[in-house]
């Protein structure tokens, strides 16, 4: 099962080198948002997430989630 993941790179490490290392851990990197030091990508096994978690320079890694707004209705708080 492919899972979408997000990786936050800390301020002490170079974004490019951490991105390369994250890729080497098995993350298919899809987008790097430089200003936010955030990498989004996909993994095909949970072990890859655990490997990234152990890496130097990774402040946070987790599965990507989603947001939703409720149906437009006067009685449902928006």
């Amino acid at each position: 099962m492919t899972k979408n993941v997000m990786v936050l790179v800390d301020e002490q490490h170079r974004l490019d080198s951490v991105t390369a290392a994250v890729e080497a851990c098995g993350v298919r990197v899809q987008r790097v948002m430089r200003g936010m030091r955030t990498i989004v990508g996909a993994v095909s096994d949970d072990a890859a997430i655990e490997r990234v978690q152990q890496m130097d320079g990774v402040a946070s890694v987790r599965e990507e989630k989603s947001f939703a707004v409720p149906p437009n209705h006067r009685d449902i708080p928006q």
């Binding site: 987008r31 948002m33 955030t38 990507e64 989630k65 947001f67």
Partner: peptide, 10 residues
Amino acid sequence: GSGTERWILA
């Protein structure tokens, strides 16, 4: 009405 976090961050 729903969106993934990467869309929002982007």
